[in-house]
Computed example of a mutant assay.
Amino acid sequence: MTLDPQGNAPEDLSHAGSVTDKAIEYMIEQGIAPISVASALLGGALGLMARTMEDRAIARVLQSALASVESGELHEMRRSQAEGAGPAQ
Rank of each mutant, 00 (worst) to 15 (best):
S68M: 08
V69E: 13
T2G: 09
E70D: 07
D4W: 01
R60I: 06
S71E: 04
Y26R: 14
A67I: 07
M1T: 14
A40Y: 00
Y26W: 14
H75N: 15
M77C: 14
I28M: 01
R56Q: 14
L74R: 02
S71P: 00
L62T: 11
E11Y: 08
S64M: 13
Q30H: 03
L3V: 04
A45R: 02
D4R: 00
R56E: 15
I24Q: 00
V37P: 00
M27Q: 03
D12M: 07
A40R: 01
P10G: 09
L3A: 05
L3M: 11
L66T: 08
Q6L: 14
L13F: 08
L41G: 00
A50C: 07
A65L: 09
G31R: 00
D21R: 03
A40F: 01
R78M: 14
A57F: 04
I24R: 00
S36C: 05
N8S: 10
R51S: 09
E76F: 05
E25N: 09
L62W: 08
R51Y: 09
S68W: 01
A59G: 07
M27S: 04
A59L: 13
A82W: 04
L46W: 08
A9F: 05
G43L: 04
E11F: 12
N8C: 12
E73C: 14
R60F: 06
G47A: 12
A38F: 07
G44F: 01
Y26K: 13
L41I: 03
E76A: 12
L48W: 11
Q89A: 15
D55W: 08
L62Y: 10
G43A: 08
A67Y: 11
L46A: 10
E25Q: 10
T2M: 08
A85G: 11
A9M: 07
L46S: 08
E11P: 01
A23R: 15
